[in-house]
Amino acid sequence: MNEFVMALGWLGLYAPVALGAIGSCMGCGIGGSAAIGAMLDTESGHGRFIGVSLMPSSQVIYGIVIMFSLQRDPMTAEAAGAIFGIGLLAGFAMLYAGIRQGEAIASAINASKAKPEIFGISLAPAAVLEGFAVFALVFALVLSGSIPA
């Protein structure tokens, strides 16, 4: 039983990084595909399309920060349950935010191609999603402080 709880602890510890990386991959893939398509149709502004398509890469960085804040040396059965819960749920939040951010960026690129002046404001939904991912990060850090060493 103790070993199983410890295994869950390790799973929860690495989950934010793994799920965050998957979210970033998918989000950047979606945004990048939109940027590539937009480059076929436009003569300029390619740099900014590629630039915004990389926005979802922040999810994996947040995941790494969460992992370090959850890390306990050595891992104990008392801490493992909390690490599992916080890590896994934070990881899912990063995964979902990354995918949805990619979609929001793809829409923004598509819309701003037709109307370049809305480029900035069209990124607002993607920025809000970034904000939600930051909430997940911050509160994971806050809760990690109350996990027994």
Binding site: S33, A34, G37, L40, D41, K113
Partner: peptide, 15 residues
């Protein structure tokens, strides 16, 4: 990936 392919296709078409 088919989904990404359609994203590229749609964004490559002018408004």
């Amino acid at each position: 990936n088919s989904r990404l392919q359609y994203i590229t296709l749609i964004t490559s078409l002018p408004h």
